[in-house]
Design a binder for these strands. Structure first.
Length: 65
DNA sequence: GCGATCGA
DNA sequence: TCGATCGC
């Protein structure tokens, strides 16, 4: 069982403070309603403010965290 | 509204 | 316990 792989790849994200940065998500999971495709969501931390935020990550980004 | 997740 | 994430 591959329990909790660390996230390795940076994702281009718009931080709450309005900057585009490449950040490594703390965690990425699938957010998928029944019978729909859903999205992958990453939990990120804005290095400017320390605030956490969630944002879509590309569908090909591996689950991790 | 649904789905999972966790910081606030 | 809620907000916020995204696309359908």
């Amino acid at each position: 069982m591959a329990a909790r792989e660390p996230c390795k790849n940076a994702v281009k994200v718009r931080t709450p403070s309005g900057k585009e940065l490449e950040l490594i998500p703390r965690k990425v999971w699938q957010l998928t309603p029944s019978g729909r495709k859903g999205v992958k969501v990453g939990l990120f931390q804005d290095p400017e403010t320390g605030k956490f935020f969630r944002q879509k990550v590309p569908d090909d980004y591996p689950l991790c965290g």
